[in-house]
Design a protein around this nucleic acid. Structure first.
Lengths: 335, 335
DNA sequence: TTGTAAGCGTTATCAG
DNA sequence: CTGATAACGCTTACAA
């Protein structure tokens, strides 16, 4: 260890011939410092390569200038080629950078991981916590909120907790997609629904159900968990149960992708025999065979919006409990 | 703000009827504490819901128990459906969790972002820094190493710095792939190379060049930047310049995916007319049309290996400068 | 084995 | 506008 002693405020103060307090003021941009002294301090900081010790600072300010982003991990999908989580990370990261805060990423898959997250976040080691897409009714967000720690979730928290969240308009997007199928003359429209322990899975199914019901069409439902593998299985099940289906809305692009392949293997042409629409608009969607019509959700923007809300809460502002971003139907060749 | 005063060591000490030092010992697992006292302290900790203040702790220990993972961001590919970066994040995260350290994620795209990273990491706010796939000759890793801050890179650092790194066997993997093409009777084997300011791009091209040269075959090269879009353009260029090519090795699966589509649009059949092999083995590879033969790299393991090396360095151990993980050819239908 | 006490590097509160 | 000085919560010699 080349313990190149880092310069402290003290060192800078000596060099600049002022007190620690003054250096602190300059470093923190206080305006009540004489021009000449400020310059001298700045020079000393520069020459010594002084960088504030954040631990010392946060010990007294009670802030850490860091924010945790908690993601469920067990699901392989977190980092499969689904771009949802990476997109959120990116949006969060952008917004945090603008606010000069650090992103602490926590994957909470295993029970042990979940405990770790709990200990860390309840321990006030971060100024706020962002939850990405929870499964089931996780009590942690509520607990944190009760402790006064700023929290924002992506997706309405299940279990009825009144926590601020940001989400996309699932129902509207799905409804738009299903209506597109109906307008295209489809009458036996099936859906490959997502997991029913996640808001995204639940709401997209609601959107499907409402829309086919409004049109007086039957419900043809199979379930998946957003992954390709599950999508393929669900598609096979649908074909077995309803060989005459003429359209499928899949609650994720990955499932839609697998459905495309399953349909091809079963001898169906897309979209001639069966129209397919997905949800997400991942990059792959434009490259499937045929290119996938899908519902785009502004995922990076979702991450940014979550972060902005969190920072506002941390700053003591009031924010609306729900913040919903629009979705958009991207029409390609599959429907 | 429900400033529910968090209990401090002091509070626990009072409650347990011992000194702060003793509580500290128990909390940190010192063995030199009497059984009975330990239990009493544990109970007090439990009852008060005490969680150590990390800032205070790191102020005295000079450790932060956190590690930074720096990734270039400007490239859209960081969070496109390329699974490289997410995979690394996951591996790093797993290993860090085992070591009970936090992951601080830093995207260093813009010059401003890069500066932020520099300030933060040189400021010793983390116990070590992991660099994921740098572009060009970034001086930062070397600077940090000189400051005595543990550093590990993914991929041999360009510019000749003697820094510890972990990488996969690019050359071996590509060589294996190209030989597979040759064994399949291909003689006009082209490559869509990656960016030449990244080790992965450089080494994969080297692997191609060496192998075709050994076989006395011509070099047919076009460049991309690992993205789908660039892969499509490169494929078109190759077809224009060498309409008689009978195989393509693309330095990334995304580029291979786009090549597949471009070949189809040009009326070529894969693999009948042109065989295609990619690199990465992203999940999508199994779902392309036709399914993509590719070189698999153990990307999560890469993240884990980087982290393990970093932790060893931080613990004062010596580590080998290069740690290379094997790659594997996954044969599907495209070649 | 346990307690005392001295910092760790900042910021914040007062005087001056 | 500037400088002492007291926290902030914890670890760690050193004593007892």
């Amino acid at each position: 260890m080349t313990t190149a002693q880092r310069p402290t405020l003290e060192a800078v103060a000596r060099r600049a011939g002022v007190s620690r307090a003054t250096v602190s003021r300059v470093v923190n941009g206080s305006t009540t410092v004489a021009e000449s002294i400020r310059d001298a301090v700045r020079r000393a900081v520069e020459e010594l390569g002084y960088v504030p010790n954040l631990a010392a600072r946060s010990l007294v300010t009670q802030r850490t200038d860091s924010v945790a982003l908690v993601m469920p991990e067990e699901a392989t999908r977190v980092f499969s080629d689904d771009q949802v989580f990476p997109g959120i990370i990116r949006g969060v990261s952008q917004e945090l950078e603008a606010a000069d805060k650090q992103l602490v990423l926590m994957l909470a898959g295993s029970p042990a991981g979940h405990q770790r997250v709990e200990r860390y976040t309840t321990g006030r080691h971060v100024d706020g916590v962002l939850f990405a897409s929870l499964h089931g009714e996780d009590p942690l967000p509520g607990t944190l909120a009760r402790l006064g720690i700023p929290v924002v979730c992506s997706g309405r928290p299940l279990g009825g907790a009144q926590l601020p969240y940001v989400d996309v308009d699932h129902v509207g997007g799905v409804s738009r997609a299903v209506r597109h199928l109906i307008e295209g003359g489809r009458r036996r429209i099936a859906t490959i629904a997502g997991p029913q322990d996640m808001v995204a899975g639940i709401e997209r199914l609601v959107g499907y159900r409402e829309t086919v019901a409004d049109a007086g069409l039957p419900e043809l439902v199979a379930f998946g968990d957003f992954t390709r593998e599950s999508g393929g299985a669900a598609m096979r099940q649908l074909l077995a149960e309803h060989p005459d289906l003429d359209a499928v809305f899949a609650a994720s692009d990955l499932m839609a992708h697998a459905a495309l392949r399953t349909l091809r293997e079963s001898g169906r042409r897309v979209p001639a025999d069966v129209a397919v629409i997905g949800f997400d608009d991942i990059e792959t969607a434009a490259y499937t065979e045929p290119p996938l019509t899908t519902v785009r959700q502004p995922i990076v923007e979702l991450g940014r919006a979550m972060t902005r809300q969190l920072l506002r809460i941390a700053a003591g502002e009031d924010v609306e409990q729900a913040f919903i971003l629009p979705t958009e139907l991207i029409v390609r060749d599959s429907a």
